[in-house]
């Protein structure tokens, strides 16, 4: 299989890899880089578990070719705790009991982070819209929506006091 060099930013660090031509970003993250925080739920772009942030927007890594990430900035869940402290979304998911089996949680948090990065004051409908591509089978979504709204509030508060 042809190998393609890809240079991109992964969780804030420059990354240089040779990937199989035609392989997905999901495969590169998990099988090549050992970043198992990105989950594979369907391999067909319908469950959202593999959501990562590419250049600020939420993308399905199971449908994204690794080689197309050249020159781009990719954030996975592992990138949220780079400095050791939890992101307010992670804190809110914990305190709000917004995770059960946990398999959808990485994609949910990244879809939410992408929203909050773009829109610090989302309405409930904005949150619903942002996670509508992410399937959760355990929680009934309600605690997830509430956790994201709580995190948004905390982030706004942190910005004000900063």
């Amino acid at each position: 299989m042809t190998k393609v060099p890809v240079q991109f930013t992964l969780n804030g660090r420059e990354q240089n890899e040779f990937v199989d031509s035609g392989s997905t970003l999901l495969a590169a993250l998990r099988d090549k880089l050992g970043l198992y925080g990105t989950k594979a739920g369907c391999h067909q772009g319908t469950c959202g578990a593999c959501t990562v942030i590419i250049d600020g927007s939420p993308q399905l890594s199971c449908l994204t070719l690794a080689e197309r990430c050249a020159g781009k900035s990719v954030t996975t869940l592992e990138g949220l705790t780079g400095n050791g402290a939890l992101h307010p979304l992670q804190q809110a998911f914990m305190e709000g009991f917004a995770a059960q089996c946990g398999f959808c949680t990485p994609g949910m948090i990244l879809a939410a982070k992408s929203l909050l990065d773009r829109n610090p004051s989302p309405s409930r409908d904005d949150v619903i819209d942002a996670i509508s591509g992410n399937i959760c089978r355990c929680t009934g979504y309600d605690p997830i929506i509430n956790a994201i709204l709580t995190a948004a509030e905390q982030l706004r508060g942190a910005r004000k006091s900063a």
């Binding site: 369907c42 067909q44 319908t46 469950c47 409908d125 949150v127 619903i128 819209d129 996670i131 509508s132 399937i135 089978r137 009934g140 979504y141 309600d142 997830i144 929506i145």
Partner: peptide, 14 residues
């Protein structure tokens, strides 16, 4: 055979 065809209520249908 996928979640586009297998219907479930989303976060907007609660």
């Amino acid at each position: 055979t996928d979640f586009n065809q297998y219907l479930m209520p989303g976060p907007g249908d609660l």
